[in-house]
């Protein structure tokens, strides 16, 4: 029974899943008891399960969530016969109630991230965004893959943008730039579900009071998401977390003490600070400081320091924007 005949992965996988009939299962088990190579294959199968289970499942990026909210708002609109329906524009405060950055009392200054990319020519040798992410585009597998890769890059911008643009719509009433972005971003690849006019009406009708707080003096974007970061998240691109959070205005004593820490970190790293978020790291109050390591490759050095003594809470690591 347990002679030279080995079993293949399919049989072993069926054994593991309990799909074999009793006799066959007994036969295979008998073989496994004496056959190391087959035991090894069985272990390989178990490895597959373990590896799949251990693969992290990231949360939905904010840009996608906003895009879906928008599509659903459009759907609600079209259901009512396409009326203008200002009263039914999405209640952004409600939708975003549980978003980590909603707790921030400060006023959003949403244009900062976008502006920062072009307004810091001295710090980068990258001429434009497309040139900054060459990795996926550069390698060509075959025709299908090339097309896929290019389209992918272009469309990713499509849903990465609304996170910032929508934040702008909440804060900046009637800003032409904001509504234009929304219109533009709403047009991409969403089939029959898009009704751009809704996006526009949202931009002009949101009643949030506006108050501008210049942040020009600071060379980096300061946000206060109070988000609790984990190592795993910090390995994801940071734009999804930092990008949508409201920019904190200057002038408060809080911002001043943050600035002190940021300067100390910059002294240590000798890198230009790009963005700073006030939040938590594994439950502990922390400043997450992102500085450009290699802007062309979108590589950041991420320092996590406690906001009181500016001591590193973990080893600085590389991250991506």
């Amino acid at each position: 029974m347990t002679g030279d005949t080995h079993y293949d992965l399919d049989i072993l996988a069926e054994l593991a899943e309990g799909l074999l009939d009793v006799d066959t299962a007994r036969q295979v088990r008998g073989h496994l008891a004496v056959c190391d190579p087959c035991g090894e294959l069985l272990a390989d199968l178990a490895t597959v399960r373990e590896v799949l289970a251990a693969t992290p499942t990231p949360a939905m990026p904010m840009g996608v969530a906003l895009r879906i909210d928008k599509a659903l708002a459009a759907e609600a609109e079209s259901r009512k016969g396409g009326g203008v329906g200002l009263a039914d524009t999405p209640d952004w405060d409600e939708l975003m109630r549980d978003a980590p950055w909603e707790r921030a009392a400060e006023v959003p200054e949403p244009a900062r991230f976008g502006a920062g990319k072009v307004a810091e020519p001295a710090r980068t040798d990258a001429p434009g965004q497309d040139a900054t992410e060459p990795v996926r585009l550069g390698v060509v597998a075959d025709d299908g893959t090339i097309v896929q890769a290019r389209r992918t890059r272009a469309r990713r911008r499509g849903w990465a943008l609304p996170a910032v643009a929508a934040a702008a719509a909440v804060a900046v009433v009637g800003t032409a730039l904001a509504s234009t972005s929304l219109l533009a971003s709403g047009g991409g690849g969403q089939g029959d579900t898009v009704a751009p006019p809704v996006a526009q009406s949202k931009a002009v009708s949101t009643p949030t009071p506006v108050e501008r707080n210049p942040t020009r003096a600071r060379s980096y974007a300061l946000t206060d998401s109070q988000h609790n970061y984990s190592d795993q998240e910090l390995r994801q691109p940071l734009e999804g977390v930092f990008g949508p959070a409201p920019i904190v205005g200057g002038g408060t004593s809080d911002a001043a003490s943050v600035d002190k820490c940021v300067n100390r970190v910059a002294d240590r790293s000798k890198l230009p600070t790009y963005a700073v978020d006030q939040g938590q790291y594994n439950g502990q109050e922390a400043l997450v400081i992102a500085s450009w390591k290699d802007k062309a490759a979108q590589k950041l050095r991420i320092d996590i320091v406690d906001p009181f003594n500016c001591k590193n809470l973990r080893k600085p690591a590389l991250g991506r924007w």
Binding site: A13, A16, R29, L42, L45, T47, V51
Partner: peptide, 29 residues
């Protein structure tokens, strides 16, 4: 899983899954 086994099995040594999978294997065996 049978299709993935040859592709992913090398990951057993890269993670700390070794112990778990061996235990599972032994249990099945």
């Amino acid at each position: 899983r049978a299709k993935l086994a040859p592709i992913l099995s090398h990951l057993r040594n890269r993670t700390d899954l070794n112990r778990v999978s061996s235990a599972k294997g032994a249990e099945l065996r």
